[in-house]
Every structure is written in C-alpha cells, then in structure tokens.
Simulated scan of single mutants.
Amino acid sequence: MDKTQFLNELGVKLAGLEPEERFEILADYEEHFAAGAVSGKSEQEIVFDLGSPEEIARDILAGRTEEPVEEAYYVPRPIASKKRSTGSKTGIFLAMLIPNLVVYSLLLSFWGVVVGVAASTVGFFLTPIAFVLDVILNHSFEIYKLFAVIAGLGLGFIFLVFTIWLAKVVLLATVGYTQFNKHLMKGEKKHV
C-alpha cells in the first residue's frame, strides 16, 4: 500500500467526522509520510510503521459515537518484498566493487578540488592582512599593491560563491551515489 492508497482508505474510514477535522487528521498523516521520506524510508515502510488505516480510524473514533465506515470492497495489501540473502549481497558487492572504486575515487578527487578552491578563497581573503603587514614591516606604501589587494578581495568573493556551489554539487553526487548503493544492496525497487 502506498501513501495515496493509505490516505484514501483512512479518509473513507473517517467519513463520519466533520470535513475540517478529517482534513486535519489526513494532513497530520501526510506529515508522517514527509518526515519518513526525509529519513529515507519508503512509503511501504512508513505505512507498516503507522499501521492499518482501519485500526487508526478505530482509535480516533473510539471516544466518539461515530463508527468507522465499512468499505464494500477488499483492498489487498502488497506482499512485503524479501530482503536479499547474504550470498546475493556478496555477489552484488563483488560486482559493484570496481565501479564503486572508480566512482568513489572520482568523488574523492572532486572533494580535493573543493578543498583546493576553498583554500584559494581563504588566501584571497587574507591578502589585506598581508598588505598591512607589508606596510608595517617594510615601511613602504605602494598604491599598486593596494589595488592588487582590492582585486584579490573581489576574486575571493567570486571564489566563495563558486566554492559553495561546487561543494553542494559534489555533496549531492556523493550522497546520491551512496544512496543508490544502499538501495541496491537492500534490494529495493526504487533506487534514488
């Protein structure tokens, strides 16, 4: 049973309630699905954790005089998929070993680029300190150095924006590929 089926069935079971109250209850359960999705759960796992809509409706209506509306048709629940065996997981691990080594090596090198660009950004932002130290220690003020410092600060801001963007892209790629591998090992149909 997926989210839509769950919410539809719960809405039918709570048909005796006022529409506003039913809407609030269904909105609460939609929030459960959103929170579960953020934590990486599938809709089927969330439904399993919540329980059946019939039981939920019975609990909600227990203190009231309304009884849950009985439905005239049977909705079969999907059979939970079996988890992969240890041998199957080992085979998948061995099959994915070389691709994972290649992809994670590339991701590691991209993280190296992010660190390098971030270090350059810090260097550009430190140029005013170097300029002030040069003026104090050498007792000489040269205007071209001041313009170089201003240009360095400008480059620092450009590199800062680029560093943030690059870090987000590499983080999304790393998390996405790791999630793909996790779902592949678990045997879930939906990979990302």
Results as ranks from 00 to 15, higher is better:
1 M>Q: 03
2 D>T: 07
3 K>G: 11
4 T>F: 04
7 L>M: 02
7 L>C: 02
8 N>K: 11
9 E>D: 04
10 L>V: 04
13 K>I: 13
27 A>N: 10
29 Y>Q: 05
33 F>P: 02
34 A>R: 04
36 G>V: 02
44 Q>D: 11
49 D>W: 09
53 P>I: 12
55 E>S: 15
55 E>R: 10
55 E>T: 14
61 L>H: 03
64 R>Q: 14
68 P>C: 04
79 I>C: 13
81 S>F: 04
84 R>I: 10
92 I>K: 07
96 M>R: 15
98 I>E: 08
99 P>A: 03
99 P>Q: 04
103 V>H: 04
106 L>H: 03
107 L>N: 13
109 S>R: 08
119 A>V: 10
127 T>V: 12
128 P>A: 03
130 A>P: 10
136 I>L: 12
137 L>F: 13
140 S>R: 12
141 F>T: 10
143 I>P: 10
144 Y>P: 05
144 Y>C: 11
145 K>F: 01
148 A>H: 08
148 A>Q: 11
151 A>K: 00
153 L>S: 06
153 L>N: 00
155 L>S: 14
158 I>R: 08
159 F>S: 14
159 F>D: 12
160 L>W: 01
160 L>S: 08
161 V>M: 09
161 V>C: 07
162 F>Q: 05
167 A>M: 06
168 K>Q: 14
168 K>V: 11
171 L>S: 12
175 V>P: 13
179 Q>N: 15
183 H>N: 15
185 M>G: 09
187 G>S: 00
188 E>A: 02
190 K>F: 01
